[in-house]
Design a protein around this nucleic acid. Structure first.
Lengths: 84, 84
DNA sequence: TAAATATTTAGACAAATATCTAAATATTAT
DNA sequence: ATAATATTTAGATATTTGTCTAAATATTTA
């Protein structure tokens, strides 16, 4: 749970998740959406991956990232519990 | 949204929210549940308050903290959107 | 095989954060 | 009024974090 909340505690990373909600994207395409260097985006993607919020698959020279909605359920569960 | 995720990005603060889920508590009673100094807990409570996740009310020399479930809904909404 | 393209790793640095102790403020009880 | 109790504020410090540039790795194309 720690890794998930840590991952969500950054606007750029939350924006990446919203991008991936619509479609999977390569690391480069993701980076192009921000005014941040590619290495920094790569680092953000790594944090999202460690939290299991995204998955990545190498396709040739590209790396395609996708949202992992399974883990999103875990956060939902945690927050819903607060309301019970 | 930033303040909310920032507030949730700490195990102690999440634990405080879970305590308050069951009942409202004074600052001192909350502090007693952790091996952390009272000033530090006071600081955590301040962050939770700025995020509107808790409310506080002074009762005599005590300050009673409660969970604010209205804001919890905002987080739910954000996360649910990720799944749509 | 050499050059080009895509991505990550490494190392550095400034800013943010969690924690502490000491002191200040507010309220209640003697 | 003074002492005791509850909480917050102030200031310091070590750690974590987001960012950058330069270099390394992997893949494709000429």
């Amino acid at each position: 749970m720690n890794a998930i909340f840590k991952a969500l505690n950054d606007e750029t990373r939350r924006d990446i998740l919203e991008l991936l909600r619509k479609q999977e994207m390569t690391a480069g395409d993701i980076a192009d959406q921000f005014h941040i260097s590619k290495p920094s985006i790569s680092h953000h993607l790594d944090i999202l991956k460690r939290a299991d919020l995204v998955t990545s698959e190498k396709k040739g020279q590209f790396v395609v990232y996708s949202l992992n909605t399974t883990i999103v359920d875990d956060i939902l569960q945690w927050i819903i519990t607060l309301k019970k």
